[in-house]
């Protein structure tokens, strides 16, 4: 008599239940929130990766802040040192590239009355820093994450099956009515950056006139890399029509939403 064991396979493994967890820390003059979805979001490797995300942002702030007199960037500009972190050169190169790519609608050099232009990479550093910080979560297995940094959002997943990566719903805030969501975009991987006048007053300067851009509304760019989404959102805030025409040819992976 032959007894065969019939393998009993369950119809389909139930999809893993993802729990959420959030962290918030104040860095780079804004609140940065890290959200993760994982089966077990209290995992030590996950916590360590989130700590590295914040550590990365604190380090960027220490090197490139234009508010802290002891940052590498300001000490270099004040001729106090020439021994600065390599990030200063990296960001300078990126700023040049951004200016070229946007036909000068993004500019990191501010003119100063009767002086040399001042290098102020603030408009680019946050997106670049958060994109870099996200790399610490991309190497963690079985996790999906979203990082929000004062209006700039990056969404991604760690190592492992990516088909299971959940979708994150990113609300685009109506800047004329604080707190109101004007539109929602669903993102599984990628970045969302918004530029507008309401967030911190008219802080975006039109490089062609040297005057702040003051009008209602906002411009949002969605795409693979937060650095370039951020740069294009700023450029689009300066000249939405021009960027609407430029973007498909220069960076076809990015989409512009004008509110």
């Amino acid at each position: 008599m032959i007894t065969a064991e019939i393998p009993v396979t369950p119809a389909a493994p139930p999809p893993p239940v993802l729990a959420r967890r959030a962290w918030v820390e104040h860095v780079m003059g804004t609140a940065v929130s890290v959200h993760v979805r994982a089966v077990e979001p209290t995992r030590p490797d996950l916590e360590a990766a989130v700590a590295r995300v914040f550590a990365h942002l604190h380090k960027v702030d220490a090197v490139l802040s234009t508010w802290r007199a002891d940052s590498d960037l300001l000490r270099l500009q004040h001729r106090e040192t020439e021994d600065v972190h390599a990030w200063v050169a990296d960001v300078t190169e990126l700023a040049l590239e951004a200016e070229e790519r946007t036909d000068g609608l993004f500019r990191a050099w501010r003119s100063r009355a009767g002086g040399r232009p001042v290098f102020d990479p603030t408009g680019l550093v946050k997106g670049w820093a958060v994109a870099g910080a996200a790399a610490h979560l991309e190497v963690v297995p079985e996790v999906a994450f979203s990082i929000g940094a004062g209006g700039d959002v990056v969404v991604g997943a760690g190592r492992g099956p990516t088909a299971a990566a959940p979708t994150w719903r990113i609300g685009l805030e109506d800047l004329t009515t604080p707190g109101r969501v004007a539109d929602v975009v669903s993102v599984r991987r990628g970045a969302v950056a918004t530029s507008g006048a309401a967030a911190r007053g008219g802080h975006v300067v039109d490089p062609r006139t040297g005057r702040p851009v003051v009008r209602p509304g906002s411009t949002t760019v969605i795409g693979p890399d937060l650095l370039w989404a951020d740069v294009w959102a700023t450029a689009a805030w300066v000249d939405p029509e021009r960027v609407a025409a430029l973007l498909p040819e220069r960076d076809p992976g990015y989409r512009l939403v004008v509110l």
């Binding site: 959200h35 929000g148 004062g150 209006g151 959002v153 969404v155 719903r169 990113i170 609300g171 309401a198």
Partner: peptide
């Protein structure tokens, strides 16, 4: 909504 793009300090 999971995250907001375009927020200010306090609302953030």
């Amino acid at each position: 909504i999971d995250m907001v793009s375009g927020a200010t300090f306090t609302s953030d």
